[in-house]
Structure formats: structure tokens, C-alpha cells
């Protein structure tokens, strides 16, 4: 089925730190602030738990975009988790293009537990970006096969 831009609803794997972004997402719910329904939240204890492998796996399994949502810098519950997450994301960004995935499909943002509006803004902007890019090339390849 051909997907035009309007009909394409991107799937985004959002790894959310249980100390911050996960709670922000819950607050967004309590405030009934709607956001793109292609966002799937995967709870992690800390953004530092998200491995490169998981990010790549998400793309492999068909995510059109991957978000890592970590605590603001200098306020990680585990001191360095968000910094490690950033390093890993930067590392993967170095070769993402080489393996045929636009780097814009992977983003890390810092936000705190009581920033529900920012959570909504961040995921919606991501969804818009991915809509512009179209479906993940990996998925397109899988579908074409």
C-alpha cells in the first residue's frame, strides 16, 4: 500500500527514563494533552540503560524513529546515566547514515518529570520530522522484499 505523507503515521520507539520522561508522559495523560499515537514508550530505569543495540534493534524491528528521553544534564539520578546515553547516541549517529538511516531519525532530549508540555512538544516535533522523512528505509526495504 503506497503511503503518502498525510496518511503515513510514523512509529516511534521512545525509551523513557522512569525518573523523568515516563512520569512526564503520565502527566501529559492526566492533562489530556494529545500527541502522535505512533509513539510507543519503553520504560527504562535510566537513559543510561539504553544500549546501542536496543536503538539499532528498534530500527530493525520497524521503528521510523527512535527517541531517548533522559533527565536534564547534571540531574541524573544515577549521576552519569544521561551522559552515557548521549555518548551512545552520538556514537550511533556517526554511522547511522552509512547504514542508510537518516540521522534525524534518532534524537536524545533532556526533560524532567514535571515537564509534561515539553514531553508533548518533543514527541510531536519528532513525529513531524519523521513524517517529512517518510517511512524508515529499513521498513521500506522489508516491505519491498
Amino acid at each position: 500500500m503506497p503511503e503518502d505523507k498525510n496518511r503515513f503515521s510514523p512509529k516511534i520507539a521512545a525509551f523513557c527514563c522512569f525518573h523523568s520522561a515516563y512520569l512526564a508522559a503520565d502527566s501529559a495523560g492526566a492533562m489530556r494533552k494529545s500527541y502522535s499515537d505512533g509513539v510507543y514508550i519503553i520504560r527504562v530505569p535510566c537513559a543510561g540503560k539504553v544500549e546501542g543495540l536496543h536503538i539499532l534493534q528498534a530500527f530493525e524491528k520497524g521503528a521510523d524513529g527512535v527517541l531517548i528521553l533522559a533527565c536534564p544534564q547534571e540531574s541524573c539520578h544515577y549521576i552519569s546515566g544521561n551522559i552515557r546515553a548521549k555518548k551512545r547516541v552520538d556514537y550511533i549517529l556517526r554511522f547511522l547514515e552509512e547504514i542508510g538511516i537518516e540521522p534525524e531519525r534518532l534524537k536524545l532530549f533532556n526533560l524532567a518529570s514535571n515537564q509534561a508540555p515539553r514531553f508533548v512538544q518533543v514527541v510531536n516535533e519528532m513525529a513531524e520530522r519523521i513524517k517529512d522523512l517518510g517511512p524508515s528505509p529499513i521498513k521500506a526495504g522489508v516491505i519491498g522484499r
Binding site: I42, V44, P45, C46, G48, K49, V50, E51, L53, H54, Q57, H77, Y78, S80, G81, R84, R88
Partner: peptide, 23 residues
Amino acid sequence: CGICAAECPAKAIQHKGYTDNEI
């Protein structure tokens, strides 16, 4: 926090509740 599990190059550490298999 699971940072060790994420950093281990040999994948020798698993964090129950967030293992590679589970994720």
C-alpha cells in the same frame, strides 16, 4: 540503574526487568 549492563562489552550483565530479551 543498569548502566553496567549497558556498558558491558561482553553482554555478561543482564538487568532483570530490562534484559536484552525483554527489551
